[in-house]
Simulated scan of single mutants.
Amino acid sequence: MTRPASPLLHTTGAATFGTCNAQNQRLFSVNPGISGVEAMEHASLLMNCVNTLSFLGAMDDGNEAMRWASHYLSEMAKAVIDDLTIGLQQAQAGDE
């Protein structure tokens, strides 16, 4: 039987984002210990920005900045969601 996600779920700090340099090192990471609910709210806000920017960027062929901004924001949102997924998997593994 599948259990609902625990309201005590927090970020783990395992997910990184912001690839840079020739070695493709990650420049940023999600901070550990953030409430899962708050982290998901933030990811949702980031994705709202991505949706707006990608729509506006699609309508304006001359504005690459919107497309790059939506790319970077989507990478941030993905890192938050990936980090919470890791925390959920760890919580589920501890319950078994």
Rank of each mutant, 00 (worst) to 15 (best):
residue 42 H to Q: 09
residue 22 A to Q: 11
residue 37 V to C: 08
residue 38 E to N: 13
residue 21 N to C: 11
residue 25 Q to M: 04
residue 7 P to C: 09
residue 24 N to M: 13
residue 28 F to A: 01
residue 47 M to I: 10
residue 70 S to L: 03
residue 18 G to M: 07
residue 45 L to T: 03
residue 39 A to Y: 02
residue 18 G to Q: 06
residue 19 T to I: 15
residue 6 S to W: 10
residue 4 P to C: 11
residue 15 A to Y: 02
residue 61 D to K: 07
residue 40 M to R: 08
residue 36 G to H: 02
residue 15 A to G: 05
residue 32 P to F: 03
residue 32 P to G: 03
residue 8 L to T: 13
residue 42 H to L: 15
residue 46 L to W: 00
residue 66 M to D: 06
residue 54 S to R: 09
residue 64 E to N: 12
residue 10 H to V: 15
residue 21 N to L: 15
residue 45 L to M: 12
residue 37 V to Y: 14
residue 44 S to F: 05
residue 61 D to Q: 09
residue 10 H to G: 00
residue 56 L to Y: 07
residue 2 T to E: 12
residue 37 V to H: 07
residue 9 L to H: 02
residue 71 H to V: 13
residue 56 L to D: 05
residue 11 T to A: 02
residue 24 N to Q: 10
residue 62 G to A: 13
residue 58 A to I: 03
residue 65 A to Q: 07
residue 54 S to Y: 03
residue 9 L to A: 04
residue 40 M to H: 03
residue 28 F to S: 00
residue 58 A to Q: 07
residue 68 W to E: 14
residue 23 Q to P: 00
residue 37 V to A: 15
residue 23 Q to N: 12
residue 45 L to H: 08
residue 21 N to V: 14
residue 15 A to W: 02
residue 69 A to E: 08
residue 62 G to T: 14
residue 48 N to H: 04
residue 52 T to L: 14
residue 28 F to Q: 03
residue 64 E to R: 04
residue 65 A to R: 05
residue 13 G to P: 06
residue 58 A to P: 01
residue 21 N to F: 13
residue 20 C to G: 08
residue 17 F to V: 10
residue 14 A to P: 01
residue 9 L to V: 07
residue 50 V to W: 01
residue 15 A to Q: 06
residue 48 N to R: 04
residue 17 F to M: 08
residue 16 T to C: 09
residue 9 L to W: 06
residue 31 N to C: 06
residue 26 R to V: 00
residue 59 M to G: 03
residue 53 L to E: 03
residue 67 R to P: 00
residue 71 H to C: 11
residue 15 A to E: 06
residue 9 L to I: 14
residue 25 Q to F: 01
residue 4 P to S: 07
residue 33 G to T: 06
residue 13 G to N: 04
residue 67 R to Y: 02
residue 50 V to L: 10
residue 14 A to Y: 05
residue 63 N to F: 09
residue 36 G to A: 09
residue 23 Q to D: 13
residue 45 L to G: 12
residue 62 G to L: 10
residue 26 R to W: 00
residue 18 G to H: 04
residue 33 G to K: 01
residue 42 H to D: 09
residue 53 L to D: 00
residue 5 A to K: 06
residue 69 A to T: 12
residue 41 E to F: 06
residue 4 P to T: 04
residue 41 E to Y: 09
residue 62 G to E: 13
residue 14 A to T: 07
residue 29 S to L: 09
residue 30 V to Q: 01
residue 24 N to P: 01
residue 12 T to V: 13
residue 6 S to V: 14
residue 69 A to Q: 07
residue 40 M to A: 15
residue 41 E to R: 14
residue 58 A to K: 05
